[in-house]
Amino acid sequence: MLERNIDAARAPGFEENRMMFIKTQKRVAVALLSMVAVVSVAACGGSDEAVDASANEAPNASRYVRVAPVETISSVAPLPFSGTVTASSGADLAFQTSGRVARRVVEVGQRVQAGELLLVLDNPQLAPALESAVAREQELQTRYDQAQRDQRRVDGLFASGAATREEHEQVEANAQALKAALSLARAERARAQALLDETRLKAPFAGEITAVMVDEGQIVAPGQSVLALSGESHLELEIGVLARMLPVLELGQNVTLLQFGEALDVHGEISRIATASLPGALNRVVVRLPQDARLHAGMTLGVALPSTPQQTLLSVPMRAVVDIGLGAPRVFQLREDTVEARAVQLVRILGERVLVSGELAAGDLVVIAGLSGLQHGQRVERVK
Rank of each mutant, 00 (worst) to 15 (best):
V120Y: 09
A159P: 02
E336K: 10
G13R: 11
V366D: 01
G240Y: 07
P306I: 01
H296T: 10
A173D: 05
V154G: 05
P222Y: 11
T275W: 07
E49L: 10
A297G: 12
R294L: 06
V383W: 10
L251C: 00
R149P: 02
V214W: 11
A55N: 08
I270R: 12
E336A: 13
N5E: 15
G115A: 04
D292G: 05
L195D: 15
V316S: 00
E238I: 08
S271P: 10
E381V: 11
F21T: 13
I324P: 04
G280M: 05
M20G: 10
S34D: 12
A221V: 14
E232W: 06
V241S: 04
A181W: 00
Q170R: 10
G207E: 11
T308S: 01
A274G: 01
R379V: 13
R66E: 05
N5I: 14
R27C: 03
E262G: 06
L178K: 01
R294A: 13
R294N: 13
S230D: 14
Q345Y: 13
R348V: 02
K202I: 15
T84G: 03
D52I: 10
T199G: 14
V285K: 09
L249W: 06
N174W: 00
A281V: 03
A203L: 02
G231S: 09
G377C: 01
L305P: 00
A341S: 05
F14W: 11
R379L: 07
L301D: 08
S233Q: 08
S74W: 07
K202S: 09
S372G: 10
M245P: 01
V105K: 07
S40M: 08
N17G: 14
T338Y: 11
D323V: 01
H376I: 13
R186E: 07
E340S: 15
V344N: 09
M1S: 15
V344T: 04
L313F: 11
L314Q: 03
R200T: 09
